[in-house]
Design a protein around this nucleic acid. Structure first.
Lengths: 204, 204
DNA sequence: ACCTGAACACCGTTCAAGT
DNA sequence: ACCTGAACACCGTTCAAGT
């Protein structure tokens, strides 16, 4: 029973995939700092040196996790866009952005942390750029006179709101539950984006 | 010469202060992860166990640094407010917020990281709340119909912009230097805040 | 080709012991 | 009261050696 199905001497026949899966499981349980290569090897049932056959370093493993995180994030954002009628797209995507951060806090933090290096890792950089694209497009549509500025402002808002919520920084601000708080803020923000961001601001 | 001025057997007569000063020096040079208790002890010329006379743990030391960071941040923000005529206060403070993050990136990151625990450390929580107050007041003044929402939206924007800049996430977005980029975005954002955030948003 | 075992140079933290 | 020295239980990483 047990030995007949086992492909080789060890696990799944694919240690790299097994390590990544274990890393995702461990991430939100222990946080990024608790995600050690030794502990990961232990969990998968392999020696401390074995992961180095598949990842050059702990950082490389974290970057692989972050890339997969950005891909899931992009897929979620694009699905949200596809399932929402156009006038409400930006609000819906803003809410989805923040909710992703709240549902997978450690993964979200890792994706935007200095522990992964987007300058050195081209695949990671591309995954991050792709993740930005869908939100940016929806935001730019709301501010056709200044599309790139509108996109960055929208990104900054949703990213900042996510970070402040993750850091428990908004506890004293509102008694509402986070769902309605997020919706309320997103609607107000988008309304402001539509009406006021576009005109060229006075320099003084 | 050398022994006559030395107060006691060791440094300054105040190891706690010496450790904190060394921590601030090391922060932006090495980042928070490079800020180890042993290395700190080495730098100050003391045994690895000595810091534990003054800080219960490495985390406690980091929280002391974060508290001091929030105090400097608050002082800077209030000075900015005091030196700026009212109609331009919010834009000026938004710029100052982002610039603080860019000038002391590791300190700013530490202040808003999960490495310090605002739920467990009351002094830290208070320092963070105080830092929020001045920006929130200026933002609420711009949106009298919805002051708390306006304050949170403004905070989210400046915080998100800071984080995205620190993470090198905005590199491909604009060719401008960061000073004029920040100013441009802050002006547009505040214009939108003034004109569009206040009205009660429609639910659909 | 892929993994093990043992080692190296580190950590944070504790604790008896010194002054 | 404050600090040292030595130890404990960990890390990430390397490297010879096994199969």
């Amino acid at each position: 029973m047990s030995t007949s199905d086992a492909p080789t001497g060890y696990h799944h026949g694919d240690l790299k995939r097994a390590l990544l899966e274990a890393a995702f499981e461990m991430l939100d349980a222990e946080g990024t700092d608790g995600l050690g290569l030794r502990e990961l090897a232990r969990k998968v049932g392999v020696s401390p040196a074995a992961p180095y056959r598949h990842f050059r370093s702990r950082q490389a493993l974290l970057e692989a996790v972050a890339i997969e995180g950005f891909r899931r994030f992009s897929a979620m954002m694009e699905a949200k866009q596809a399932h929402t009628p156009e006038p409400r797209q930006l609000v819906a995507m803003a809410e989805a952005y923040v909710r992703f951060a709240l549902v997978q806090p450690a993964l979200f933090r890792l994706m935007f942390s200095q522990q992964v290096d987007k300058r050195a890792n081209k695949a990671l950089h591309q995954a991050a750029v792709d993740a930005y694209a869908s939100l940016a497009k929806a935001a730019a549509r709301e501010v056709p006179e200044a599309p790139s500025e509108g996109a960055v402002i929208a990104w900054a808002f949703v990213h900042g709101l996510s970070m402040l919520l993750l850091d428990d920084q908004l506890l004293g601000v509102s008694p509402q539950n986070s769902d309605s708080l997020i919706r309320n803020l997103a609607q107000r923000f988008v309304a402001g984006l539509r009406t006021g961001v576009a005109p060229n601001p006075q320099v003084r």
